[in-house]
Design a protein around this nucleic acid. Sequence first.
DNA 1: CGCCAACTTGATGGCTGTCAAGTCAGGTGG
DNA 2: CCACCTGACTTGACAGCCATCAAGTTGGCG
Lengths: 236, 236
Amino acid sequence: MTSVKRACGNCNLRELCLPYGLSNDELERLDELVTSRRKIKQGEFLYRAGSGFEAIYAIRSGFFKTDVLLEDGREQVTGFQMGGELLGLDGISTEFHTCNSVALEASEVCVIPFSRLETLSREIQTLQHHFHKVMSREIVRDHGVMMLLGTMRAEERLAAFLLNLSQRFTARGYSHADFYLRMTREEIGSYLGLKLETVSRAFSRFQEAGHIAVQQKHIRILNIAGLKALMSHQRV
Amino acid sequence: MTSVKRACGNCNLRELCLPYGLSNDELERLDELVTSRRKIKQGEFLYRAGSGFEAIYAIRSGFFKTDVLLEDGREQVTGFQMGGELLGLDGISTEFHTCNSVALEASEVCVIPFSRLETLSREIQTLQHHFHKVMSREIVRDHGVMMLLGTMRAEERLAAFLLNLSQRFTARGYSHADFYLRMTREEIGSYLGLKLETVSRAFSRFQEAGHIAVQQKHIRILNIAGLKALMSHQRV
DNA sequence: CGCCAACTTGATGGCTGTCAAGTCAGGTGG
DNA sequence: CCACCTGACTTGACAGCCATCAAGTTGGCG
């Protein structure tokens, strides 16, 4: 844990994160709340299913996955998170986390003590409303994943996944067409409800079709329209 | 629309709904906010994807489904909702609803104007916290559906679905083992990522195995342990 | 340099989708 | 009151997508 001054005011992710829309005065009050950061090494847990819930976390740098485990060992990756996104919202419900959060690369998060966030959002309407929007956005995102898992075929799922990543990298100022995957094929597969071999085969077919260039985790998107077209095919 | 006094104070669903945990004084203040109700006939929309968001809705009686449509016509049912549950949380994010909400039987909902709910939850900490819990619970529920869609086989999905319904009926004072489905096989299938024929076959197999008795939409659970056991089988 | 995890590719099989035909139940109108 | 009609459901046959099993390749790291 490290402590910081001006956590949010100086953060270049603030437009993607909790401080969105706050005035300078309000930002300062949020800064008083976000006083500690945590560094997480690759492979380490930010929190585990079953652990007590006290804070939510804003990703300052790095990349995470969240997953749920069934008693029999089956794993479902529920999401991949990057800078500016919030982690831990699942814990509010029961005061315990219900999923695991694992860093897929060396990362740093801002710790946001939840009860203090609630206090502050009782005082700052903008903050309150934006927080509600963030939670709602997560629900909408989850509906998109259900759609993906419930109705799409393997190649559609992977195309949707790549387009989603591309879009989020763009929003953070990175290339939309050239990026490194932080997760393994198995983790992609778990997220998409597929086996790693199926993911690998789909990558290969995309490459053969000239839609992307794959070199292990290095992805270059060559034909965005081609990927988008893949998603409008009905299940035959 | 009808107007009411003492909307929540007299409602027997209040322990399952938004008023949970409020004092009598606080309940009265919530009652001032929940002043109108809406009756929805079977098959009618409570709201549609794309329509403006102004309020969330608490189900006073009846049964709903929510679904998302893809441009090419594919439908994903994202949930089935019953008394005491909140509808419309998806709309907070963008000020527009992102899914459709359809009554599966004649229903009645309490209209909760959202901006007024935010105002009140800035004043009543208990309400604020409980609302956050409800949103978080929805996120956790969605993760459960992802797990179901991503890792479970057809019979496991249907068993999980029946057990979930049973549990929710129990919480509302109905029989856990004898109930009527409000949705069609096709809607169940959409929710579970299966085709209606597969749902129908799974029902038949459950019946042959003596786990349930099916007569169209009338379901009797004969062997809960048998259903639960179905869910612990690894994908072969 | 060697080891290991991650990945790719091929062969095969099974679960579930698809297509088709038939059954059932509820509602309407004569 | 009953015949008819329609939507919902069931059941069977078959096929295809993806999982499984297996073997080989690549790249990173000690």
